[in-house]
């Protein structure tokens, strides 16, 4: 039985991924967590570490459009896949309707849960353009906020849904 003591024993992985629409190539340790890859290697600090057990959602990022807990996902999983972080949501300088709605409704207070919450909302609206309040409450069960009590967040998501639907209608 071999025991790997130091990271020097393990070959690095050649990671090829796309982050906010831009190609990224890095040599990484297999054990590197996606959250640390984003925050420390790429300097994308929007995703946060809080509970570290996949319950709170402050580390939410979108992997091929699906929300994942970056705190408990290996960076390895991003291989040949698309990552979207909060920094990528307004890449061309224009705020995403969700961001605009969050500002409009002051749907945030301390802001620590906000990037994860907005990305979770994005993935909800991508798959369900017209969610009910109950749909939202169920979807955001894993995106905790200790400051707001959620009401303005739900209002903001509803407003963004309308904005996006309006755009879709053209």
């Amino acid at each position: 039985m071999t025991e790997l003591h130091s990271s020097g024993d393990v070959p690095r992985l050649h990671l090829r991924t796309s982050v906010n629409g831009k190609p990224v190539v890095r040599e990484i340790e297999p054990r590197l967590l996606l959250l640390d890859f984003l925050r420390d290697d790429l300097g994308l600090k929007g995703a946060k570490r809080s509970c570290d057990v996949q319950v709170c959602g402050t580390c939410t990022v979108l992997l091929d459009g699906l929300p994942v807990s970056a705190c408990t996902t290996l960076a390895y999983e991003a291989m040949d896949r698309q990552l979207l972080t909060i920094e990528g949501l307004s890449a061309d300088g224009e705020l995403h309707p969700l961001q605009a709605a969050f500002i409009d409704h002051s749907a945030l207070q301390c802001g620590f849960c906000t990037p994860g919450m907005i990305l979770a909302a994005k993935s909800l609206l991508d798959e369900q353009p017209n969610p009910t309040r109950a749909d939202m409450q169920a979807y955001f069960k894993g995106n905790l906020c200790r400051c707001t009590g959620y009401y303005y967040i739900l209002d903001a998501v509803a407003e963004a849904a309308e904005t996006l639907a309006g755009r879709a209608r053209g």
Binding site: T60, L66, A120, S123, K141
Partner: peptide, 9 residues
């Protein structure tokens, strides 16, 4: 099961 993120992965 759990939440949307756990269900996704």
């Amino acid at each position: 099961v759990a939440n949307v993120r756990v269900r996704a992965a």
